[in-house]
Design a protein around this nucleic acid. Structure first.
Lengths: 128, 128
DNA sequence: AATAGTGGTAACCATAAAGTAACTAATGGC
DNA sequence: GCCATTAGTTACTTTATGGTTACCACTATT
């Protein structure tokens, strides 16, 4: 009877990290918040290809995982500010390394602007 | 008329990296290959919760992105060895940081063994 | 003659993730 | 009275991802 799990502590913490940040939008969100807090609408403007529904959802998950602080102000119209927690700040150098790696490993690519999914097709990444 | 792309070089190379390794299986595969080459069947045994179809597919994508070398030997029964390229080796310290981060950020968790999806439910990560 | 062993592939199905459009609450300004 | 504003939510549809089972090729062994 075969094992039904991965039996390796390092692989497992890696899996855990990837479960938290390893998707299409979360690293971008964290990166954009690295210079300070930002409102929902601003995040949506900087990532124009994400839908509001999904952005809401990603922010909620990041908050639940302890990476984001959500501050809601009792104003009309509403104002909500998102900022990084200490946990997330500890991740920033790693994110930086991930992006540096792409620049080194794929020097022929120019990462000026990127589309994130256009018309439901891959590539999720595309130079413009 | 709104932008349809993300206008930030650092975010874009980050997106690119995550498109390459930011999914459920790829970081594990790379990690397992960090000690040397390995056969298809061995990878499958060490990641018992992945299906052959998906493993094949992930290996193919990693090969296409220049992270894996695939060596097929003309033997019966067949033997195929996968190993990391230089590009992938450059990624290992980053993977290590990702896993270290999880250990620091979530000290209450014990990453001994993990299940990767059970019965189609999250959590994708689960202590046993 | 049947079976085991390896690294797949094909057809088909289930689930998860993401997208779209319309809608809401509460207030200020015209 | 009407519209704009913001941060969402809801219901519904589409796309992507992953899983299951069966099958293949080729040889050695029983």
């Amino acid at each position: 009877m075969a094992r039904k799990f991965i039996d390796n502590p390092n692989a497992c913490s890696l899996v855990h990290t990837m479960n938290i940040i390893g998707n299409k939008w979360k690293p971008i969100i964290l990166y954009l918040l690295s210079n300070g807090s930002m409102r929902f609408g601003m995040l949506n403007a900087l990532i124009p290809t994400i839908s509001k529904k999904v952005l809401t959802n990603q922010l909620k998950e990041l908050e639940n995982d302890g990476l984001l602080l959500r501050q809601s102000f009792a104003e009309i119209p509403p104002r909500v500010e998102y900022s990084l927690t200490e946990k997330a700040i500890g991740l920033l150098p790693v994110l930086r390394m991930l992006s540096d790696w792409a620049n080194e490993a794929y020097p022929e690519m120019e990462f000026e602007q990127c589309r994130i999914i256009e018309n439901g097709k891959k590539p999720a990444y595309n130079n413009v």
